[in-house]
Every structure is written in C-alpha cells, then in structure tokens.
Design a protein around this nucleic acid. Structure first.
Lengths: 340, 340
DNA sequence: CTGTTAGCGCATTCAA
DNA sequence: TTGAATGCGCTAACAG
C-alpha cells in the first residue's frame, strides 16, 4: 500500500531520508525531519514490501524450519510434545529477533534446496535429517544451516548441530535395568532411524549390557508401526508372547505411555508382568501410572540453542562449539520392577 | 542464482518463452522448444525468486497462520495436542496446494495487519481471536481471512470461521452429569475466554442445569493459571476444601488429565472422592485411569476445513456455509461417579 | 544532511 | 510462436 516514496512525499523529504529513518541511521537526519518522518510512518501504518526487500537485498529475514519425516506419517508425529516444545520455542525466538518463521515438512532434499533459493532464506533449521542427506544439502546451498538431532555419516565437525547425548541416555537406562536384574530387553523405536537418535540410544544400551558381559543383538530392536492400531497389535503380541524379555525400552515417552495404558486395558500388570521405560521425561511420563522411569531432556532448550547458533552464523559471529550435545538425566520412577 | 534470463540464454530462446513454459502455457510454445527449455530448467535447478514474484504480482503464495495467545504463555499451549493436530493438518494442506506456511503467535492485531501487508499474504488463518479484535482485523486488510475457534461480537455471518458446537458440548456433558446425580460443578477453563469457546461450553452447562431447575452461577467458572505449579495448588485446594461441588469440569483433556494424575498422587480417589470430565477426546483422555469422560472433537478436520475454505476464498469460489460449527460427541468413560 | 539513480527478477503488455 | 519493454518497491552507491 503505502511505499517509501509516498511517505517521503507526505513528509516533504526524499525517499532516502525516509529509508535512513527506517534503518535507524538517525545520525544522518536532523531531529526535526526525523520526528516528522516518524509521524508520517506511524500515521500511514507503513509496512515494507518484503518482496522488494528480497529482490534488492537478496535476503528475506525468513528462517526456514524443515522437519524431515516420512511421507506417510500419521499426525502423532506432531502430537508428540517434543515437536511442539521445539517449535514453540523456535517460533518465539525467531519472532523476537525480528525474523519470520516458515514451517515445512518433507523427506526430499531437493525441496529444501528449492525452498532456500526461492525465498533467499536467512537461515535454515533442519530437524531429524537422515545422515546421508546432510552432506547433499550442505553442499547445495550457502544458507546458514543448523541441524537438530541429526547424525552425520562423514566428519561431524563441519556441521552445526544441536543434539542430545543419546548414547549416554540409552546407556544410563540400560545400566539401571541391569542393576535391577533385567537381562533381556526389547527396544522399541522408529524404524528409519538406523544412524539416528534412536539408534544411538540403542547403542548406549548395548554398551551397558556388554560391560556386564550380556549380549544385546539387533534382533532386540523393534521398529514401531506408524499406525496406532498396528502398534496396539504389537503391544499385545509383545506382552502375551511367552518370551524372554522382561522389559520394554521405548525411545519416546509418548509410545511408552500409550503402551502402558493399552496393556493395562488388556489386563497386563505393569511393572508386575513386564517393566517399561520411556525417553524424554515429558508430561506423558507423569500421566500414566505407574509413572514412567525415563530419561530427561529439554526440547525447548534445544530449539532456543538452535536459533541462537543460527543467529551467530547469520551475523558471522564466532561459535565456540559447533556440535552441541545436551545432557541427559535418568529419572527413576515406578515402571521398572526388580527381578530375581 | 539461475534466473529466467539465464535459462533463456542457455536454451537459446527469449525470457518470455521460458516464462510461458514455467506457467504451463504450452499452447504458445512449439514442442521442440518446450522440451529444450524444460531440460535446461531441470539441469540448472531453476527456482523462481519469490521476492520478484511478490514485487511483480503482489502475491506471495504464503498463507499466514496466526495463533492468538497471551504474551506470558508457558509452553503448554503448544504442548496441547489440539494445537499440534491443527498445525500439522494445515501445514500438509497448504504445502500440497503449492503454498507456503508462515507461523506466528501474537496478541496484537496491528502485528497481523503489518504481517499481511509486508508479505502480501495470499491468505490468513487466525486462531483463537478475541471477539473484539476480529472486526478490526477484517476491516484493516483485504487478505482472504478464515478464523478458527473464534467468536464474534457483531454479526456472525460476515466472517468465515471454522468452529465447534461448543455450547452443545458443554450441554451434553452437563446433562450427563445431572443424570448421574451431580448438582454442583466447578468449571475450569481459560481465563480470557469470556466470549470464547470455553465460555460457550460453560453456557451449555448452564442451559442443561437450568432445564433441571438447578442454578449455575459464574462463581463456578474458575480460570486456570498459566503456571503448572500454580495449577497444582489450585487442584489441591479444590479437592481438599470441604466444598459442595462433586465434579471438576475441565475445558481441555490436557488439564483434566494433569489434575487427575496430580490428585491421585495426593491420594485423592477419582472418581470416588471427586469426579472429573475433560473436553477434546485426545490421547490424554485415554492415558489416565480412570479414562476420562469427555467430549470428542477432531482438530485435524478443523485445520483441513479451514485451509479448504481459505483456498475457495483465494480463488473466488462460492462458499456454502461461511461459519461452520463441527459436531461434538459425548464420550462416556470412567471418570464420573453416580452420586446419591 | 538530503536527493538522484541504477538495478534486483519477474509478470505483463505490446509489438513483430 | 517469439522478442522487447515497462514497472513493481526497495537498497546502496553516489552526487550534491
């Protein structure tokens, strides 16, 4: 609607002067004109045309947030408070720094590249990127890039990433389980995550078991179906089957809570018949009873750190640690029984 | 990077021809050049500069999604799966129609207007807008506008809105409670919502009570604190105080589940000592035990309908019902006890 | 301190 | 069927 030119005419000055006021270069403007121009800007409710800004300056002040997920996800992915907390925190940070938040989900690296070019993105946050794709993206674009919870197949230190001590988390859970007498576990996690967070957590479990001379093979790693009904089937089979495992180790409180609730509805006693652990320490772990033994992490902090690092990248400020792994904390509650 | 001009040079044609190919106006281009141009576009990984498109055409293909919330919200607002489901559904719809998704939270109507102007938004989805602000926004901008879960103080039919039969939901819950012998309830909901969804639900309760000759005053309407610890205090006071109400009616499963879990930790028997009801019928209602008696709604459907309506508005297609109120369904489970 | 100007990449209109 | 020209609103460099 109202343009710099119009504001200039209304204020009786040149467009450049208006631009100077807009950009806070007040040294170059006399006090009188400054006030007059500001008044007109306010009165006309001037809002810059971002299209023109992009075209002229090659920068959009848009931060793209791209969440990698399979094409056939049901809505549970975003229903997990983990996603919500990260998104909420990032939206707040991005906005408070005067940037804009563009959200996108995909599983296609080309789409990332196109998005970045088309919008001249100021920065890009990439969540849950499969290891083999990270390199492609990084090499295809020059946009500042911060990954969240991504694992890399090549040299880690070229990437900026906010992650978690996933392996340590798995290790602590498993060490605790062993100390409670458990020797056979079933690890339930996302399928496509070999190489991702869930796999690191599994490796942590392996480490703890190996330290005690116990074996833990990949056959214990059970991928979770995306469909809820299918998960219910799985839970039922797992609990009813006369198998050797005494505990279900979930890679998310969401699924752990779902399983606990469903199994209880089926008459299964938890932890009497079978123990359960979660991961995240979010509201779900405190909602079910018994309360879940789980691993604490702070997803909001992840989001804030990611934006903070991205802003440093955008403004060419030095970054002490390019690959941060936030700490974890075992939270012992009531969902694990002592055996033997 | 690569521009139409560059593509044209590489293909040995004029920029106009490239533009025609890009816009699918294939009638105006010979088969041979069409293929050649397409090949170059593919090879150079051409992506249009959206800044230029905005500047030239005054439209950005961005759909803005603005969630109204108090400045001092803690992260629970987005942690509620209700928000996540709506957002997830909208992101999917917007993307699949070739549009872009810009997310923003605010409580300031001026920000909405500025955002719309600055980005030449193709459309705007506004969630939870206070009644008095709707009119201001509608009159300040020409952008196609669809509200979600908003209530209007003036004539409803000028707005496009996807809502819920909130009053009916409250009515059904209350009628059920009365049938179970309850005569004194406490209604716990968001504070600032007088005039909003939660208030409509309360009015539904009032209606059901009045039909039975029972009074239900505003003193039963208890606003929920934003801070979790404060909510805990509230729950404790409510349950321990020797008061007359026999049931806590929550306007969200999230809070109902939180209360059930917390009160149980305090040794309160539910529904033995006090009954509880929720609203939403989401995962929380099935996670706690007893399972919550609640009112079912489908937030994903809300999101999809909102985008669908917005697209009709954008493309000037006729809209049968500008103000849709999705249906509700009472879901009786185990959190309400029969009294007397 | 203030004004002028070129050019960013695209859509669109008109001309060939 | 294709080419050339204009202008969208802003930035940045330069001129006064």
């Amino acid at each position: 609607m109202s343009t710099i030119k119009e504001i200039a005419e209304n204020a009786g000055v040149s467009p450049t002067t208006v631009a100077n006021v807009l950009h806070g270069k007040t040294k170059r403007v006399s006090q009188a004109t400054l006030e007059k121009v500001r008044a007109v800007i306010e009165e006309k409710k001037y809002a810059p045309n971002m299209g023109a800004i992009i075209l002229a300056g090659n920068n959009s002040r848009i931060v793209g947030v791209i969440m990698f997920m399979e094409p056939r996800w049901d809505e549970t992915v975003l229903e997990d408070p983990f996603s919500s907390a990260i998104l909420g925190a990032m939206e707040q940070e991005i906005r408070s720094q005067g940037y804009f938040f563009m959200l996108h989900t995909t599983s296609d690296e080309d789409e990332v590249v196109r998005l970045s070019k088309a919008w001249k993105l100021a920065g890009l946050i990439l969540v849950w990127v499969p290891g083999n794709i990270c390199r492609v993206i990084k090499e295809s674009i020059e946009t500042p890039l911060v990954f969240i919870d991504s694992y890399f197949t090549d040299c880690e230190h070229v990437y900026h990433n906010i992650g978690l001590q996933d392996e340590q988390g798995g290790y602590e859970i498993a060490r605790y389980l062993v100390s409670m007498g458990h020797t056979h576990i079933m690890f339930l996690a996302n399928d496509s995550s070999f190489g991702g967070s869930d796999f690191a957590r599994f490796k942590g479990c392996q480490k703890a078991f190996e330290e005690k001379g116990l074996p833990l093979g990949f056959d214990c790693y059970v991928p979770m179906p995306k469909d809820r009904q299918e998960r219910y089937e799985l839970y039922k089979n797992i609990a009813h089957k006369n198998s050797t495992h005494t505990v279900l180790v979930f890679s998310a409180d969401y699924y752990a809570a779902e399983a606990v609730s469903y199994l209880q509805d089926c008459g299964v006693d938890i932890p009497g018949q079978i123990s359960v652990t979660g991961f995240d320490d979010n509201i779900f772990s405190r909602l079910v009873r018994p309360h879940l033994t789980t691993v604490n992490q702070d997803p909001g902090e992840k989001g804030r750190l990611a934006i903070s690092m991205l802003m440093k990248l955008i403004h060419n400020k030095p970054i002490a640690t390019p690959n941060i792994r936030l700490g974890v904390r075992l939270e012992v509650r009531d969902s694990v029984r002592k055996v033997n």
